[in-house]
Computed example of a mutant assay.
Amino acid sequence: MQAVYMAIPQVENMRRSMNTASGMRKALKEGRFMGKAPLGYRNSRDVNNRPVIEVVPEKASLVREAFELFATGMYDKEELRRKLKPKGLTLTKTCFAQMLRQPAYCGKIVVKAKDNEPELTVTAIHEPIIDETLYNKVQEQLKRRVKRKAKPKKLVAELPLRGNLICPDCGGNLTGSASKGSGGVYQYYHCQSPCRVRFRADVAHLHFEQWLRSLNIPSEIVALYLAILEDEFNALEKDRFKEIQVLKLQRDEKDKLLTEAALKLLKGEISYEILSRVDTSLRQEINALSMRIHDLEVQESGFKHYMRYGMTLLSDLSGYYTSAELDVKQKLVSSIFGGKLVYQNGNYRTNGQSEVMSLIANSKALLGGKKRGSSSEKAEEVGKVALPGIEPGSKV
């Protein structure tokens, strides 16, 4: 009997544990997020006192920004985490990585496999912060970055174009190496295939800087583009302000409806069940409106700073390139030109086309015509000029 009495509490604890696990699994299958709410949400209770999570607009906008930026492929996890930290997204490396893999943000709940039941993915009852398409893009980027863990090549200061040059004969990537001669050590770019293309790096660099100088955008074209873009930006700012005002009016209307519903309940005109359904629906709409308002209000308007910097850079490409650090030089070359560079007989050309090169081509074609009419007329011409090839017209 003593053994039985000692065993009863243990059996009771096991029964409670099994019931709790079963209840949590049932809740997960219903689409309820169990446990501590992820960043961007807070734990709450519905009208039936059952656990739910609700969106926190100010944090949700940061989560959405993190997903959108990472989906572009321009940032790794640590770089993006540090970029968003000053804005309020304070997470450790591990937590940030877990956030990017959390399916709850796109309105999905994963129910893990147990016993004979397979793993399930169900639609959550809470409001998603991002859509499923964006979530899938982020997962693809995470998979790609796992595959990219190969050791990067060591950068050589004397070979800044390595990685951006291809062979003019076979189209393969050119590498670089040093060769010792009678006058000292010289750096060469060369092909690794049997075509044996090889040329002095210092000569190629001299021609490259001369080519960059020939691509500079004239100051009058820079001023024209800035004026056009500034007008467009100011128009967008007005539209943004109007949209915020409209959204705030809509939110106020929803708040008013909530108050009216509560008064009708007090007067006995509606039942508590009807109020609960109305309350849940209206609060979801209010949260969505608040999130959109917050996103519009916190949008940075650094247009003038970035555009003037970018246009200044394009008006003195060779100067920026010459004074830049090695890693910046390589990023500058890869971002400006639409593909790899081909160097042959003292000339450079690209095997692709980029928006920057199109801008330069349009600018030079526009400047080559007659200078007449207003700036708005010239603006129309910018879009009408036929794009010439990216190869330079004359030998450098």
Rank of each mutant, 00 (worst) to 15 (best):
K147T: 11
R148F: 09
R148C: 07
R148Q: 11
K149Q: 14
A150P: 02
A150C: 04
K151P: 03
K151Q: 14
P152I: 02
P152V: 06
K153P: 15
K153R: 15
K153E: 14
K154W: 01
K154F: 01
K154G: 08
L155H: 13
L155P: 04
V156I: 14
V156Y: 09
A157Q: 15
A157C: 00
A157K: 15
E158R: 12
E158G: 10
L159E: 00
L159Q: 02
L159M: 06
L161M: 04
L161K: 10
L161S: 00
R162M: 02
R162I: 05
R162D: 08
R162Y: 00
G163K: 06
I166P: 11
I166M: 10
C167H: 12
C167M: 05
P168Q: 00
P168F: 01
D169M: 11
D169E: 13
C170E: 03
C170K: 07
C170S: 03
G171V: 03
G171T: 07
G171Y: 04
N173E: 14
N173H: 11
L174G: 06
L174D: 04
L174F: 06
T175G: 15
G176N: 03
S177V: 03
S177L: 01
K180W: 10
G181T: 04
S182A: 11
S182W: 04
S182I: 02
G183L: 08
G183Y: 01
G184V: 02
V185R: 07
Y186A: 09
Y186K: 05
Q187I: 02
Q187K: 11
Q187F: 14
Y188T: 03
Y188E: 02
Y188G: 02
Y189P: 06
H190Q: 13
H190N: 10
H190W: 10
H190E: 05
C191Y: 08
C191P: 05
C191F: 00
C191D: 02
Q192W: 12
Q192A: 15
S193T: 13
P194Q: 11
C195R: 04
C195G: 01
C195D: 01
R196E: 12
R196F: 08
V197T: 12
V197G: 05
R198S: 15
R198Y: 12
F199E: 12
F199L: 05
R200A: 11
A201N: 07
A201I: 00
D202A: 02
D202M: 01
D202E: 13
V203E: 07
V203R: 12
V203Q: 13
V203M: 11
A204G: 10
H205A: 02
H205Y: 07
H205F: 07
H205K: 03
L206G: 08
H207K: 08
H207Q: 07
H207P: 03
E209L: 15
E209H: 10
E209I: 15
W211Y: 13
W211R: 09
W211M: 10
L212Q: 04
L212I: 04
L212V: 04
R213I: 03
R213W: 04
S214K: 08
L215G: 04
L215V: 05
L215R: 08
L215F: 09
N216E: 06
N216W: 00
N216L: 08
I217Y: 08
